[in-house]
Simulated assay, not measured.
Amino acid sequence: MSLIGEERKDYILNKLNLEGKVKTNELVDNLNVSSETIRRYLEDLEEENKLKRVYGGAVKINLAREEPSQLKREVLYADEKRRIGRAAATLVEDNDVIYIDDGTTTLHMIDYLLNKKNIKVITNSVPALYLLIDYMNKELFSGEIFFIGGRVSSVQSRVVGSLAEQMVENFYADKAFISIDGIMMDKGITGFDEERGQLVKKMIAQSKHNIVVTDHSKFGEVQFYKVADLKEIDIIVSDVPAPKEWEDYLAKKDVTWIASS
């Protein structure tokens, strides 16, 4: 295929990754080619297992229909998550009360909270709890820890359920740091698990500022449970800048985007 053909296919994949789907008629207009040419591109990309053709266009292949275990999630995009965690931690100020969600990205924040004074951390993450306790016993962390109680998910090393939700309702936080499984402009932020999603909804409702931490692999993904609209989010911290196609939408929703360095 010619270079221009490959560039067109890259355009299709980029649009697909951001929006989750593409429509043939829109691609015809945007790329100024025939519908037959678009059909060939989509066929080629489907053969390469990069998309799934559907009536009128194509959709992103979602291979992960179930949430990976906490141990498996730890090794995915580990360097990116570490940078995101460091950038997110700069948003924490002395005397803050913060929620730290159970994600593996938020877990990386804790290493960079040790110089903060008099902060209170509320979390449902078992690994976050152990890490904070370890730092506290070594006299490296001087804040307070509040662990959300309830039903324990051993595979995901977190606490969920109605008891956990009731406990969250007893706290007001300055900032909530939230991990996600998918993000799209019109679909908001989504997750694999409805119980965890319900708990995160409570955290968002109880916080002055809500901050999503996510690596680029979640862009264009829509998972089972809708957690929140983007208008409910104040800041997104990621490993890459905001996609240009999202910039106007984010501005309208008054969402600030921070790219980690």
Score class of each variant (00 low, 15 high):
3 L>E: 08
8 R>F: 01
17 N>Y: 13
21 K>F: 12
23 K>L: 14
25 N>T: 15
28 V>C: 13
31 L>V: 11
31 L>F: 08
33 V>W: 09
33 V>G: 11
35 S>C: 05
35 S>T: 13
36 E>H: 05
38 I>C: 08
41 Y>Q: 06
46 E>A: 10
50 K>I: 02
52 K>R: 14
52 K>A: 12
58 A>P: 02
62 N>D: 09
63 L>V: 00
65 R>F: 07
66 E>Q: 09
68 P>M: 01
68 P>A: 01
69 S>F: 00
71 L>N: 09
73 R>V: 03
77 Y>Q: 01
80 E>N: 01
84 I>H: 00
89 A>W: 05
91 L>W: 04
92 V>M: 04
95 N>K: 13
104 T>Q: 04
104 T>G: 03
106 T>D: 04
107 L>I: 02
114 L>V: 10
117 K>M: 08
120 K>F: 00
124 N>A: 12
125 S>D: 08
126 V>F: 15
127 P>A: 15
127 P>C: 15
128 A>S: 15
135 Y>L: 13
142 S>A: 09
144 E>T: 15
145 I>H: 12
149 G>I: 06
151 R>N: 06
156 Q>H: 14
159 V>A: 06
164 A>Q: 02
168 V>K: 00
170 N>C: 11
173 A>D: 04
174 D>W: 08
175 K>A: 12
178 I>S: 12
181 D>K: 10
181 D>E: 15
181 D>Q: 14
185 M>R: 10
185 M>G: 14
187 K>R: 14
189 I>N: 09
189 I>H: 12
191 G>K: 11
194 E>K: 08
197 G>K: 02
199 L>P: 04
201 K>T: 07
202 K>S: 11
202 K>V: 05
203 M>E: 14
204 I>K: 07
205 A>E: 13
211 I>N: 03
212 V>C: 04
213 V>T: 03
214 T>K: 01
216 H>G: 03
217 S>D: 08
221 E>N: 09
221 E>G: 02
224 F>E: 07
225 Y>V: 10
230 L>W: 02
230 L>M: 12
230 L>D: 08
231 K>T: 12
235 I>R: 10
235 I>H: 11
237 V>M: 03
255 V>P: 03
257 W>H: 07
257 W>V: 04
258 I>T: 02
